[in-house]
Nucleic acid binder design. Structure first.
Lengths: 121, 121
DNA sequence: CACATAATTCGATAACTATCGAAATGAAGC
DNA sequence: GCTTCATTTCGATAGTTATCGAATTATGTG
């Protein structure tokens, strides 16, 4: 049962990331770390009008890829790490069936180049 | 340079998978293994008319997630493993920056539960 | 070459998604 | 309780993507 509805969710989550603006925002929020960013700052930094950005953020939140929290007048958005992890798990496990040609050694490649290319070969 | 254009490609590839029919087809092709499946069989098995399926397959192929090869009158489609691997790499490395909360231990979870849930918790 | 079969491309229509200004909501501060 | 500021919701329009039958191309067979 989990598999069919997992796919329905995955289609939605993939669709949420399948947009230039939304993918940039998600990456920006990953970079921003646990504090995330304020809605207005996200709109400013991307040059997208607030009402448009609000829709994009709602799309990302609806699929569980970002979370929001109001702090007085400001709304903080942050990347939802478990949500993204769930998507990666779906792709590797349910979709690719863990096939090593696709999934193998991915993490060790990351571990050797942890999120920056400063480290020389 | 690679990062900006990698994102443009990723948006396309994510969009290719962000469709119920196309995601099912991709999973079906992973299951089918290296021989892949014939176009008509894919259409039959999903109940989607051939012309519609042809568009979906073209979308998947355009983004490098499947490959096709003609064998006389039949066209074989197969999952493009390096293409999917590239997408997983993008998501883990460029998008998530290898953050362990999202990317950590994914492969070991796969290794312990290789593509089946028979194994109890 | 006529024929049959596999698949694609064309073309029109329907369905969905994106965009953004204007109006509404929510939260403070005076 | 009026004002201001941050953000969302509404609503209309534009743009993109999906769908599928009909026409076309590619390939093999008698």
């Amino acid at each position: 049962m989990s598999d069919l509805s997992a796919q329905v969710w995955a289609v939605d989550a993939l669709g949420a990331l399948a947009h230039e603006t939304r993918l940039s925002v998600f990456r920006m929020l990953v970079q921003a770390g646990p504090d995330g960013m304020i809605a207005g700052a996200i709109a400013d930094r991307t040059g997208v009008p607030p009402s448009t950005m609000s829709h994009h953020l709602a799309t990302l939140e609806r699929t569980g890829l970002v979370q929001s929290e109001r702090e007085s007048r400001l709304i903080h958005y942050r990347a939802d790490y478990p949500g993204m992890r769930r998507l990666l798990m779906f792709l590797m496990q349910d979709c690719c069936q863990g096939a090593p040609e696709m999934c193998g050694d991915l993490v060790s490649e990351l571990t050797c180049n942890p999120a920056s290319k400063k480290d020389t070969a």
